[in-house]
Design a protein around this nucleic acid. Structure first.
Lengths: 226, 226
DNA sequence: CTATAGTATATTGGATCCAATTTAGTATAG
DNA sequence: CTATACTAAATTGGATCCAATATACTATAG
């Protein structure tokens, strides 16, 4: 139910419109898996939730649609997008391709501050016991690694790709032992970055994403059979 | 001026809303370079143009914003996005990375129909004398090459990347000798596809995109100096 | 003459209302 | 009892109106 959304979205900045706030809250709820896939999002219920009219809600939904997080059918409504295992597999393959390049560009350019930041997030991720926070820390870790790549467009695209699959990743991390491997992978990638070993970082990143994708696909196929 | 838009957008399908029609028309106008970069798009003028209210216009603009084709400032309006040479360069680099992979996947899987289609577009592109149509045929050619790749997400991303730079490519093709090389490149790529030589197709595609990008950057820098 | 304050206009953001369509429910024919 | 036609409720799409803000313009002080 949309009414269960725990909206943490405060004004991100002074220039945020109502539409922006709603967009962020809905995107967050979808990414975190707080809304079931296939669930229809009623304009009126979202509007009531925020005590606004449907206008900004509709604009937010258009943006979500453009990003592929919801699908819309005229006069019927928008539903939370759902992805087949093969679609998810494609996204992971794509992430491997692009994020490998990103880490290659970033390793040479990484500042000490970024390295420290990545280290902090890496440790926080390893120490975190609340599954709900793993996704955030995982994302923060990777974006700390990539931030000096000098490739804003790549980052934008990778963010979009991650957005589409994050809900599935979270569901899996909650229920499997994927965390253990993720921690080891992160440590190894971070180590390669500290040593400025771009080639190794690339290899490890590609393997990290590939393995995570394969584990997720196995998980989803098992669950769909069970 | 927005009033100069030659709207060719008829209903794409029976399920198209007014917002969809306006979105397509604006996207088309931006991509084709019919609107100057930095030009502000007034909701009211677009609405008048289509004889509708501002509501569907605003929804269309939100979608364009989500795709990076316009940028919006609260209470000021949306303007046609403009890209710096370095941003354009990044897009071309990105395209090279992703489209190389796409052609690799596609070459093995290409059906005779797709090969014929690509050949037709390639020839039409080479024979076309109207610069306004080069962009369309160029895009059709490449999408015919990629369509059997089995990678819908890659295609979606590549389309978005192309959308952002197409206006600049068109401006350059209109004014330089870039066409000649483009034709030769296309012939060579198509030949490699017919011979199922994936490796060669990859190399040629990467070079094709790289060269086009470099030529475009040179063109833009010259023009900004002149 | 220039700079600044203040006002009027234009434009965007949002709310409310109406129209178009779908969906749920009901009655009726077979 | 089932299937179909019809009606009512719910929902989305769009139009019109009002509020918030920015921009252009004017007047006035210096």
């Amino acid at each position: 139910m949309a009414s269960e959304l725990n909206l943490k979205a405060v004004n991100l900045s002074l220039t945020a419109s109502t539409s922006d706030v709603i967009y962020d809250a809905l995107r967050d709820a979808i990414i975190r898996g707080e809304m079931a896939e296939g669930e229809t999002i009623r304009q009126e219920s979202v509007a009531r939730l925020f005590s606004v009219s449907r206008i900004p809600v509709r604009e937010a939904l258009k943006r979500l649609e453009a990003q592929g997080l919801v699908t819309s059918v005229r006069y019927k409504g928008v539903v939370v997008a759902s992805m087949s295992p093969s679609e998810i597999e494609e996204i992971f393959e794509f992430r491997g391709l692009v994020e490998s390049k990103l880490i290659e560009y970033a390793v040479e350019a990484m500042t000490p501050e970024s390295l420290e930041l990545a280290k902090d997030y890496c440790e926080a991720f390893a120490a975190e016991t609340d599954p709900a926070k793993w996704g955030d820390l995982n994302r923060l870790f990777h974006s700390a690694l990539y931030r000096d790549s000098g490739r804003p467009y790549y980052l934008e695209i990778v963010q979009g790709a991650n957005d589409r699959v994050e809900r599935y990743v979270r569901a899996q991390l909650d229920l499997t032992e994927g965390m253990a491997r993720a921690k080891r992978d992160h440590d190894a990638i971070l180590d390669a970055c500290f040593k400025r070993d771009a080639r190794k970082a690339v290899t490890l990143t590609a393997a990290h994403i590939h393995n995570a994708g394969q584990a997720l696909i196995r998980f989803l196929r098992e669950r769909s059979e069970g």
